[in-house]
Write a protein that binds this DNA or RNA. Structure first.
Lengths: 136, 136
DNA sequence: CATTCTGTAATTATTTTTATTACAGTACAA
DNA sequence: TTGTACTGTAATAAAAATAATTACAGAATG
């Protein structure tokens, strides 16, 4: 992976799970993670699109899990936040005149994909419920 | 992982392997990767400290592999460039007054470590020789 | 002893990430 | 029916991380 979004997403989902259906505001969530509420709302927006979370607008609004924590695998969370490949990223623009440079991105990508597959298999074994349980 | 250093390191090592003992200059290496020679020299410095590479100073100097490509696992390369944990990083300073915030870093770290172990197992199965062979 | 390299520090530029500001829209509740 | 407390989102600014550049001392060669 590449970014702190995974940590934020998992933190959010854990808080929501612990709240057992009670609506939590982005202000409150941001306070626990200690980041800006707008970032929280952005991440919630992504989690919503992935079906993990539902939110209610307006006064007394907030967010809650949309599905049971048992149904959310950590692989699904990983997947929701990832945008780049695992071990690095292709801002690489190697020299196409070099036999190695010419093909390296292809081979790096194969390697990244293979490796990521293994990582996802691993994350598929754990659910949000497993993770959240640790806080009880 | 987190950075493009893995790609740079592997690219360098592949070039050195393909050169079959001939000394390559940082200028030449940088040309293939299409990055700054100083970055190359820094990465070579790290690879040297890890025993993968040796360099010769002065005129007609350059770098070459210090050990056979078969003895360099991709896990060892990964290890040489990693500085942060796999899935994110602890610039997190969650709210210690929140029961989740209080312990999340510990649990995230456990998760990262477990996951990274799997990733390293996977990378241990492949050597630089395997990777480099693809360019022939 | 001039030349061509490495090694490294220091500085600057670029890119990425995060925080902040701003404000429209929604829902509740007095 | 209107003030209040939320969400949603865009735009901007600040901060942090990465990479490039400049500079130069030191090593080996011829």
């Amino acid at each position: 992976m590449n970014n702190g979004r995974f940590a934020i997403a998992l933190h959010l989902l854990t808080l929501l799970d612990q709240a057992k259906g009670e609506l939590l505001s982005s202000e409150y969530l941001a306070g626990s993670i200690n980041i800006n509420p707008v970032l929280v709302r952005k991440e919630l927006s992504s989690l919503r699109k992935h079906g993990f979370v539902q939110s209610k607008e307006g006064k007394n609004g907030g967010s809650t899990l949309a599905v049971s924590a048992k149904e959310i695998t950590l692989a699904a969370v990983y997947n929701s936040v990832k945008q780049l490949s695992l071990l690095g990223h292709q801002k690489n623009t190697p020299n196409p005149k070099c036999p190695v440079g010419k093909d390296i991105n292809k081979h790096l990508n194969n390697l990244y994909n293979d490796t990521e597959k293994i990582l996802i298999d691993q994350l598929n074994k754990k659910t949000l419920a497993d993770f959240s349980q640790q806080f009880e």
